[in-house]
Amino acid sequence: MPYPPRPYVLSLAGFDPSAGAGLLADCKTFEQRGVYGFGVCTALTVQSDVQFERVQWVPLADIRAQAKPLLERFGVGWAKIGLVENLTKLPELLDWLRAQSPTIGVVWDPVLKASAGYDFHTGPAPELVRQLCTGLALLTPNQPEMRRLWPAAATAEAAAATVSAYCPVLLKGGHAEGSEATDVLYQNGQEVARFTTPRLPHGEKHGSGCVLSAAIVAGLARGESLVEACRSGKAYTARVLASNESLLGYHFHNQNDANQ
């Protein structure tokens, strides 16, 4: 019996051979969250869940070439951007995406450092952050990334509130302390919602930020509000974190799981 049509979404991200992060993690998440995911490779990495050796960047022209036939053929309503080589060229990519699909919603997960231990980017200039964030559907930094994106603020929370004047910001709480992990959504300079799950003793997972942002994109593509998508994305990610005690989380394999 055929399944009903699924919304189309696009991930522009790096290829992680361990499949914990990047394109492979995004597409696993998309599938289980009930959307059809396309993948455009922005970087080829040599890494595992605990070791990062090197990266080979995909030129911007090749990124566009990968995405163009997909955007021409399919009604892609949402895109997630992860690892990119040069943040100063990201506005050009964003402009190009919007020229191809004027109504596309974009979520940026700012991958500035690999969890296996490699710095991709130093902090961009404030004017570049304003340019990048203006018009985004959501920015999903963890606390160190938020501090790096807006170092003038005294705390990650203050930085998120400031940047949320340009786009909504979901500040991830995985790097904080305490028995609970709380992500906070900011819009227009104000905190608007909190999403809390218990902090698990073996809950650290390689690529968990990629899974969360991909799960949120899937929720948005399925018609959820931003708050609903953040809540359902957080719940899905929590299940991946609880799936086993290794650094590589398991996704789930039936439609009931996908819709939770």
Rank of each mutant, 00 (worst) to 15 (best):
Y3V: 13
V9P: 04
D16H: 10
S18L: 05
A19G: 14
A19H: 01
G20F: 05
G22M: 11
L23I: 15
A25E: 00
A25I: 11
D26Y: 13
R33N: 09
G34D: 03
V35S: 09
G37H: 11
V40W: 08
A43W: 01
L44I: 14
E53S: 14
R54Q: 14
Q56I: 09
P59Y: 10
I63R: 07
R64P: 09
A65N: 09
A67Q: 10
L70Q: 12
L70K: 03
L71W: 12
E72A: 15
V76Y: 07
I81M: 05
L83A: 07
L83D: 10
K89E: 15
L93M: 10
W96F: 08
L97K: 05
L97F: 07
Q100S: 08
V106L: 12
A116P: 13
G117A: 11
D119Y: 00
D119N: 11
F120V: 00
A125I: 02
L128T: 09
G135W: 03
N142E: 12
N142M: 08
M146H: 00
M146V: 08
W150R: 03
P151W: 01
A152D: 15
A154H: 03
A156N: 12
A158W: 02
A159G: 13
A161Y: 06
T162G: 02
S164D: 09
S164T: 10
P168S: 04
L170G: 01
L170T: 02
A176Q: 13
E177D: 15
E177T: 14
E177L: 12
A181I: 15
A181N: 03
V184I: 14
L185R: 03
Q187K: 12
N188T: 10
Q190D: 12
T197Y: 03
T197V: 15
P198A: 13
H202L: 06
H206I: 09
L212E: 06
L212R: 08
A214D: 00
L220I: 04
A229Q: 01
G233T: 00
A235H: 11
T237W: 02
A238K: 00
E245H: 08
N256D: 12
N256Q: 14
A258N: 09
Q260V: 02
Q260T: 07
